[in-house]
Write a protein that binds this DNA or RNA. Sequence first.
DNA 1: CGGAATCCTGACAGATACTG
DNA 2: CAGTATCTGTCAGGATTCCG
Lengths: 138, 138
Amino acid sequence: MQGIKPSMRSPLGREIPDQVDPVLEELVRGIIAQVADKWTMLILEVLEEHGTLRFTQIGKLTEGISQKMLTQTLRQMERDGFVSRIVHPVIPPKVEYSLTELGHSLSAAFCGVWEWAAARHADIEAARRAFEARNRAD
Amino acid sequence: MQGIKPSMRSPLGREIPDQVDPVLEELVRGIIAQVADKWTMLILEVLEEHGTLRFTQIGKLTEGISQKMLTQTLRQMERDGFVSRIVHPVIPPKVEYSLTELGHSLSAAFCGVWEWAAARHADIEAARRAFEARNRAD
DNA sequence: CGGAATCCTGACAGATACTG
DNA sequence: CAGTATCTGTCAGGATTCCG
């Protein structure tokens, strides 16, 4: 009886109810889906590494992103409180982005998944090769 | 100089190189994208909670999944070594799925993100309301 | 410079039908 | 029961153009 929801295995002794509010669950799932998004993760990393950056700079540092997705992703991250967006009313425009405390904490939370993936990727690759071999045999 | 990659902030003192192999990075990113997939996460949870299950049972317990996506997702998870698939050669067919050790460890790895999301969802919702209010004002 | 608006396509999800 | 095959629609996301 263990689940990926912390309510069922939380090492902290906190009294999280076993029956998680389905509304909360749905919300949390949505949040995870968003933060696990390709561009969100990349931008998160770029901002972690470089601190405050301007729009175009993020675009250059985020390999392969289109202007549309950059705008869209940054908006979403701003909306969720992960990045702060400061507009300097000058000509030409200057907009600076940086991670909020919430953004940094998100980054830290994902660190565990990164460590897991880095530690186990060899097992995954092995599993894939084994799977290939199995299916080639029939 | 901090990133979401553990190489830059790993609390464990292990000697992970600061310059992560870009190939590995791409792989890890792909893995995360997959495991963060909606159905993958749901099935992961269902199997954690119920142990070994048959194809149809997983379908019933995974609200809203189509039979196509169930097959597809289970195949992928089997390919990556997260679930084992045992076919009993009887009539009618009987196929049993269960998590492997790798699957359980994946589940555990994501627990941290769940805890983060559960702990911080109020902040995110507040940020969203503030964002709404801000944009309503102009 | 930092976007917004528009158009377009291809990948992927859902529904349906068939099968060992 | 546990799939496969096929068709179709939707929609995320790229390219392009324009604007304060």
